[in-house]
Amino acid sequence: MKITADALLFDNDGTLLSSLESVNRCWSRWASEYGLTAEDFARIALHGRPAAEIVADLLPADVVPEALARIEHLEVEDAGGTVALPGTLALLASLPAEQWAVVTSAGRRLAEARLAHAGITAKNLVSADDISRGKPDPEPFLLAAARLGVDPARCVVFEDAPVGLAAGRAAGMTTVALTTTHRAEELSADVVVPDLSAISAQATDGSVEITVAG
């Protein structure tokens, strides 16, 4: 299967790299510090959402600024365990830097720390610090398309989380789901693959031809 696009937009955690162990460590420690239980977390969606939204869902408003700063500190300090997922480095190396972007629900400082530890250099990055509405709102992906100067309809979104795929669809973009953190039946996308090792790309005349294995 082949897809032609002008830009490729990648979610970060669970798509380009894995920080799952770090996330579990940091949020467990944070929850303990703030007296939260597993039941508190069970009632809200965590993956793919900005930390600010999660914290606001769990704690009183007057505690949120301090608690948000605490989880961001914990995660940045623990970013060293981040690793690139299969296929990530090879795929990115085949792409011109101006034709792809990272679109993440993490703050810029945390996103840059995780990318650096995974050996990824991103020229274009849209983080939670750049937007007013996070995924599943299309704003993050539309902003990335605007920064790259491309039509949203000519973008392909790579995501592992339902909220991210919903954001990509709402932006009018082609969506590719990775089953790195969710089962295939939980993901609604144009294409579903195990990870980025199933994707190859060839840049030609300002566009990118994507080949999906299998």
Rank of each mutant, 00 (worst) to 15 (best):
A90D: 11
G80N: 06
T121F: 03
P138N: 14
A51E: 10
F41V: 12
E139W: 15
R108C: 10
G119M: 01
W100R: 12
G81I: 00
L46S: 04
T121G: 12
G87P: 05
A116E: 14
R114D: 07
T37V: 05
V126N: 04
A116M: 02
S94H: 06
I54N: 02
G81F: 00
A97F: 09
L74E: 03
D40C: 03
A51T: 12
P60M: 09
V55A: 04
V55E: 03
A128N: 07
A42E: 11
E66I: 13
P50M: 13
A52G: 02
E72M: 06
P60G: 10
L85R: 06
I71C: 10
P86G: 15
E72T: 08
W100F: 11
D78C: 01
P96F: 03
E77Y: 01
A101S: 07
G107L: 11
P50V: 11
A128F: 05
A56Q: 12
A101P: 09
G119H: 04
H73P: 12
K135G: 10
E98Q: 10
D137N: 13
V55R: 02
L143M: 14
L85E: 04
S127L: 09
L74V: 00
E53Q: 13
H117V: 00
H47V: 04
A38I: 11
E75Y: 01
A116T: 15
G48V: 05
H117E: 07
S105I: 05
L143S: 13
A56F: 04
I44D: 02
L85A: 01
R133A: 14
A101T: 12
A118Y: 02
V76F: 03
V126C: 04
S127N: 08
G134Y: 06
T121N: 10
L125K: 07
A97M: 11
T121V: 15
A122Y: 00
P65N: 12
T37G: 07
D78K: 00
G134L: 04
A111W: 10
T121P: 13
D129S: 09
G80S: 13
T37Q: 15
R114F: 08
K135Q: 10
P50I: 03
L68Y: 03
L89A: 09
G134Q: 07
H47F: 08
A93D: 11
D78I: 00
R133T: 14
P136K: 09
V55T: 01
A101C: 15
F41S: 08
G87E: 07
A79D: 01
A67R: 04
P65T: 15
A116K: 06
L95P: 02
T82F: 00
H117A: 02
H117P: 01
T104C: 15
L46P: 02
G134E: 07
A56H: 07
L58R: 01
E75Q: 03
A45T: 08
I120P: 04
E72N: 14
L91S: 04
P86H: 10
E112T: 15
P50N: 09
D78N: 02
P96D: 08
R43N: 13
L110I: 05
L46T: 15
